[in-house]
């Protein structure tokens, strides 16, 4: 009762306060909403490609993406007679070449690869994210949409450039949509497939799989020494392998971490045990086609994790 009496006044106040908060929240949420959406996809791509995928992960994976990108990009432009104006919504549609972001294709001169990133997010959420990396690498040649996905491979970018160069000039004059759409898609994919070397280069997935395979083979042989603070010790080894999986030379200690006064006595033993584990695991069973990737193990960490 008392509550209700008080409540009346307060209800209003409360309602206002709530409404204000909601409104404020809405405003706050609404504002960021536009911006945050962009970053999310970018993050994903960053972590994935940045790590190890220096050269090519898997050509097959990259293929599908370019196709879509082309279609999308082109579908939009329809109305405009000019080649590239449309795809890049943010930017002027008048001139194909001048456009910084969208129109790398026409010519080698790409004004600025990086700056475009911010603007792009809107037009193509997912693909826009990728361009930053692709653009710098691919350099002048790649098209805006294609570049992101294809960029990782050297082969793709080169394959496409010719296409782009050839097609674009023609488009500028007349119907760009039809020719580019058909040719670009089919041609690009076809060339990629043919030009990309089978497995000459090793992507991050393969690398981590190889590291995992080595780790699995070492594990049963690796026993850290016991002692006070011995679990703090970390030994990092490097070693070379022959194509048949045997050791070439002996393992070397790259460095040791976690040495304290209490466990100093075990440090040497720790390294010795780690090298013993490598020797015992020695004929490593690893896929021969990736030998270039595992012939040198440069940085393998041996430690102990207390079980719970």
């Amino acid at each position: 009762m008392a509550v209700s009496a008080l409540n009346r006044e307060e209800r209003i106040g409360l309602a206002i306060a709530l409404a204000a908060h909601v409104a404020l929240g809405a405003v706050l949420i609404a504002r960021p909403a536009a911006a945050p959406t962009i970053p999310l996809p970018e993050r994903m791509t960053v972590t994935l490609s940045e790590d190890v995928g220096l050269t090519s992960t898997a050509p097959s994976v990259a293929d599908p993406a370019p196709d879509e990108a082309l279609e999308l990009g082109e579908a939009a432009p329809e109305p405009a007679p000019q080649p590239t104006p449309v795809p890049p919504r943010p930017e002027p549609k008048v001139q194909p070449k001048p456009e910084p972001k969208v129109q790398p294709k026409p010519v080698v001169t790409k004004p600025r690869p990086a700056p475009t990133v911010a603007a792009k997010p809107l037009p193509q959420p997912t693909k826009a994210a990728t361009p930053p990396k692709a653009a710098p690498k691919a350099g002048p040649a790649p098209k805006p949409s294609n570049a992101p996905t294809t960029a990782p491979k050297g082969a793709t970018s080169t394959a496409r450039t010719p296409n782009a160069a050839a097609t674009q000039p023609a488009k500028a004059g007349g119907s760009r949509i039809g020719s580019d759409f058909l040719k670009g898609v089919s041609g690009a994919t076809g060339k990629q497939a043919t030009t990309a070397p089978p497995a000459a280069t090793v992507g991050p997935a393969v690398r981590s799989a190889l590291a995992g395979a080595i780790s699995r083979q070492l594990k049963p042989k690796w026993a850290a020494p016991q002692g006070v603070d011995a679990e703090l010790l970390v030994t990092v080894l490097s070693w070379d392998l022959n194509p048949d999986g045997t050791l070439a030379g002996s393992p070397r200690v790259v460095r040791q971490d976690g040495i304290t006064d209490a466990n100093r006595a075990q440090a040497q033993r720790h390294a010795e045990q780690a090298m013993r584990a490598v020797r015992l695991a020695a004929p490593f069973n690893l896929p021969p086609e990736y030998y270039p990737a595992w012939k040198r193990v440069s940085d393998f960490r041996f430690d102990r994790k207390l079980s719970q």
Binding site: T201, V202, L218, P292, D299, R301, R304, S307
Partner: peptide
């Protein structure tokens, strides 16, 4: 690409 492979292995068994 010649950098070499890196990885880790932990002894998490009981002593």
């Amino acid at each position: 690409p010649e950098e070499g492979l890196s990885g880790a292995v932990s002894d998490d068994s009981d002593w």
